[in-house]
Amino acid sequence: MAAKSNLKNMALSLTLVCLVCSAVLGCIYAVTSEPIREAQQAKTNASIARVLPAFEGQPVMESINVDGLDYTYYNVPGTGYAVISTVGGFGGPLTLMVGIGNDGLVCNTVVLSHSETPGLGAKCQTESSFIDQFKGWDPAARKLAVRKDGGEVDAITASTITSRAYSAAVANAYNVYLKLRGDE
């Protein structure tokens, strides 16, 4: 039979349950914190490896403020920078990682997170004709904007807003790169 619901019993049982649960969580956290850190590291390294040529060692995460916005970037010594750049897309923030080599050319781009419409804007992750055009792009010579806006980016069919955001994110990443170079 359940214990009587007086103040002492109620306080006691709740306290006990909470203590035991916290202890369990503490143990699990201790066991999983290392694998979680490794998993996140592996994920970041995998993204960096996709946007920059092969590199060695552990890239250093740093952040910089450009035009009032904070950007996180990874400095890959001897190779270039992987800049994380977020711009508002059609359905929400569109976050890219943009790899820019030391030669000032865009090496590759990859979508880290997005909320674009499946089958339309979400194609910015899969449509190779769209993604591949940024490979080797020289932002100093060619304008990073969709053709409708006077740039040279071929937009995804029926997804101009997403394409615009994508181009803007790459352009912002290039500004970060310029500032980084200027600082050196």
Binding site: A3, S5, N9, S13, L14, V17, C21, L25
Partner: peptide, 18 residues
């Protein structure tokens, strides 16, 4: 069996959340 009736919901939720 040992949880007082009046606090059984919070106790269950703590267990589930854990």
């Amino acid at each position: 069996p040992v949880v007082p009736d009046k606090v059984h919901i919070p106790v269950y939720i703590v267990v589930i959340a854990t």
